[in-house]
Write a protein that binds this DNA or RNA. Structure first.
Length: 657
RNA sequence: GCUGCCGUAGCUCAGUGGUAGAGCACUCCCUUGGUAAGGGAGAGGUCGACAGUUCAAUCCUGUCCGGCAGCACCA
């Protein structure tokens, strides 16, 4: 007998080997019909699984949130069946559930195209209509391998070999079609329902390995019901609308062109945002960091010393004199891909004492990396970008305190942009690394301790995690991942402890005892790449930037030319108050002007007509709002000036008051 | 870099084996209109680049460049 505890805490006895399906049927017919799986002590399993031990049991119905993964997984299987039915000879590989959906990778000489999807989707609906039950069998390895070999499924044979020895080789059948799968699955294909859609096709390497064959992947999305599917598709549309590449063009912020793949042409408005962001960061560094600027072009030897030339040469730009007649035109320079070697040179220049530590050098350093062409993506991944970089030279004892200080800076910076949800992850030693195990043990212990403090300090707002083996080759690191307004995660900030570079470059300081010591170096970035961070901000705000960041903060627009002089005076006063204001005196209707400035997302339009000119008022129209507000020019000036004050400056003013 | 798709006016896109079109934007004229497009006229393109096939290529083929979606990469 087994004792099973139900969600209402009632405990009932069943004979061992009872199945979830039998239990559900025993409770009610309707439950049995709705049931798609069973959860034993929280772990999902098939309704047909025999229950041989005491456990907490739940009958999982189709509308349970946990069923969504099953719906998607089953949909992947059905898609594979549909594909093999339509395109005989296509080999199946793997088909997992992913965020918002599923995919299945196929091997076929001719990759799938978007045009193939409607037929596959129709076939899937047909298979779902058939409503064949999912049944499970456990096969021996040899049996599984020989069956898949006979079917010509070479990839499946490889997968059977990859299953750990202590796990069963499970085969799931749906009608005549079957697949190697760890399960679980729902009761029958009909339970998938109709709220799914095939989305796109893409190439993907077998097992993620570029040396292995390219497979043809089909992505799909699947949901509990049509409403959820519709909501998801709507969310995708919203994301597309706030695509920073589109907004960048529409708002005239920047552009790219063929001659400069992956490098940004910043237009006046975009550059205003950029500079506003840099100015913000500079204010945040004031009093703590010293800003420096290291050369763009440095002899190759420096990059050999740092190790970049050996490790990242493929991703670096080299430069040489272009003239044929120049004596040393065999001398090779590299355009900097990082700022650290430069900063170490600055540290090394002049003897440093332990009293100088921690020494914090910051730079808005423009770096260039030859990113793979397929990786380029608007501002998010470029070949030339500006890091809000800093290197802190300190002692090992100072390391933990420095990491916490950086943490405070990063968290408060993100908060100023409205990012309050974030995750800090500790990346630990990778396989390829430098430094002794003792040094890594020590560094990881220190950082683990810091991580705990970060979590404790945050009062639960910040989640923490560990990425094993993801550290840099020279030391462990923290990664700061923020969540934007539509729930997407972006890794931006990073704090990396480095035991390697200072020693390689022979950097040292004179310690209390008069001995030379090698400092620890901490690399840190907050925005990471200013370009990318701006891209994230544009998407996060959907172009509706807070006033302090908006390139054009106010447009003063006239209704008739009678108000031209007054409007010009208003614009002038705004400018004197430090507000970025444009003047629109064109001979156009106010409708036209409002529409045009609204489309480029100007936050505030001050409409001035005859009435305003006579009364000394302005009519305030905010972006996205239909109603207007009339107020005196003086009041408007004060209010706008207040609103246009960056959040950090507001804080300082509040403290001073 | 790999796979697939794409490249026509500043933008969004039609189109054809016989050297091109629309809407918006732009310029000029008329219009002075109270909160998301007033009317008219005009200008604007070596159809991504280079080769090939053809009497003839923007269209077909190839190579290259660039973009998009994934994959891989990201010091």
């Amino acid at each position: 007998m087994v004792q099973l505890t139900f969600p209402d805490n009632s405990v009932r006895e069943f004979s061992a080997g009872v199945t979830g399906r039998e239990i559900a049927e025993g409770i009610s017919k309707s439950l049995a019909k709705k049931a798609v799986a069973v959860a034993l002590d929280g772990e999902l399993g098939d309704l047909s699984d025999r229950i041989e031990r005491d456990a907490k049991i739940e009958i999982v119905t189709r509308d349970d949130p946990r069923a969504l993964g099953l719906i998607r997984h089953d949909a992947a299987h059905v898609m594979a069946e549909a594909v093999q039915e339509l395109y005989p000879g296509t080999q199946v590989t793997i088909g997992p559930v992913i965020e918002n959906g599923f995919y299945y990778d196929f091997f076929r000489n001719q990759p799938f195209t978007l045009d193939d999807l409607p037929a596959i989707e129709a076939k899937m609906r047909e298979i779902i209509q058939r409503n064949a039950p999912f049944t499970k069998e456990v096969w021996s390895r040899d049996q599984a391998k020989s069956v898949f070999e006979k079917k010509g499924e070479a990839f499946k044979v490889e997968l059977v070999d990859a299953i750990p020895a202590d796990q069963d080789v499970k085969i799931y059948k749906q009608g005549d079609w079957f697949d190697l799968c760890r399960g679980p699955h729902m009761a029958s294909t009909g339970q998938i329902g109709s709220a799914f859609r095939l989305m796109r096709v893409a190439g993907a390497y077998w097992r993620g390995d570029p040396t292995k064959p390219m497979l043809s992947r089909i992505y799909g999305t699947a949901w509990h019901n049509e409403e959820e599917l519709k909501a998801y598709l709507h969310m995708l549309e919203e994301a597309e609308k706030r695509d920073h590449r589109r907004l960048g063009r529409e708002m005239d912020l920047f552009h790219f062109q063929e001659e400069g793949p992956g490098v940004v042409f910043w237009h006046p408005k975009g550059w205003t945002m950029f500079q506003e962001l840099v100015a913000y960061m500079r204010r945040r560094l004031r009093g703590t960091y010293q800003e420096v600027n290291a050369p763009q072009l440095l002899d190759k030897s420096l990059w050999e010393t740092s190790g970049h030339w050996q490790t990242f040469r493929e991703a670096m730009f080299k430069a040489q004199p272009a003239g044929d007649e120049i004596d040393d035109n065999d001398r090779v320079y590299a355009i900097k891909p990082m700022n650290c070697p430069g900063h170490i040179q600055i540290f090394k220049h002049g003897l440093k004492s332990y009293r100088d530590l921690p020494l914090r050098l910051a730079e808005f350093g423009a770096v260039h990396r030859y990113e793979p062409s397929g990786a380029l993506h608007g501002l998010m991944r470029v070949r030339g970008f500006t890091q809000d970089d800093a290197h802190i030279f300190c002692t090992e004892e100072q390391m933990a305190a420095e990491c916490l200080k950086i943490n405070d800076l990063i968290i408060s910076t993100y908060a100023d942009f409205g990012f309050t949800e974030m995750v800090v992850k500790l990346s630990t030693r990778p396989e390829k690394r430098v430094g002794t195990d003792e040094a890594w043990d020590h560094a990881e212990a220190v950082m683990m301790d810091v991580l705990k403090q970060i979590e404790a300090q945050s009062g639960g707002r910040i989640k923490t995690g560990i990425n094993p083996g993801e550290g840099a080759f020279y030391g462990p690191k923290f990664e700061y991942v923020l969540r934007d307004a539509i729930g997407r995660d972006w890794q931006c900030g990073t704090t990396q402890v480095d035991f390697n570079l200072p020693g390689r470059f022979g950097a040292y300081y004179i310690d209390k005892d008069g001995e030379k010591k090698t400092p620890v170096m901490i690399h840190r970035a907050i925005c990471g790449s200013m370009e990318r961070f701006l891209g994230i901000l544009i998407e996060n705000y959907a172009g509706h930037l807070p006033l302090w960041l908006a390139p054009t903060q106010v447009v003063v627009a006239t209704i008739t030319s009678d108000a031209d002089d007054y409007a010009a005076a208003v614009a002038e006063k705004l400018r004197r108050a430090g507000i970025r204001a444009d003047l629109d005196l064109r001979n156009e209707k106010i409708n036209y002007k409002v529409r045009e400035h609204s489309l480029v997302k100007v936050p505030v339009i001050l409409v001035c007509g005859k009435r305003e000119a006579e009364e000394g008022t302005v009519n305030v129209r905010r972006l996205g709002q239909k109603d207007q507000q009339s107020m005196s020019l003086t009041d408007a000036l004060v209010a706008l000036q207040e609103e246009a004050t960056p959040p950090d400056v507001k804080r300082l003013e509040a403290e001073a008051a």
